[in-house]
Design a binder for these strands. Sequence first.
DNA 1: AATTTGACCCGTC
DNA 2: AGACGGGCCAAAT
Length: 105
Amino acid sequence: MRERILAAINAIPHGQVLGYGEVAARAGLPGRARLVARLLANNDEPQLPWHRVLRSDGRIALPEGSSGWHEQTQRLRAEGVVVENGRVKKPAPPRDLDAAVWGPG
DNA sequence: AATTTGACCCGTC
DNA sequence: AGACGGGCCAAAT
């Protein structure tokens, strides 16, 4: 299942972000958000786009001021994501409502 | 083995 | 927006 979660995180498109819960759900593990967090805390894959994973509030999960916090903030900004005061604005919502309902197509 | 801890989430107030 | 309680599960004490 670990690979499942890693795959879900790897599946996050550039410039888009996802919540732990959503990642867990996409990985087939609804309610196991903490498990995702655990994996990231023990992330072995250096290329893993962990910076695209946020809290459901759109806030960065790491404590503000910590190196990881800066890391995630910078990486997100590098992808065009607007980060302010440790929180992400508009957590990459679908542009079209139809697309959200009917899927990306 | 019991309790605490941790990159969390949801409903409710 | 923020605070509370309940759920979830594996590692660390």
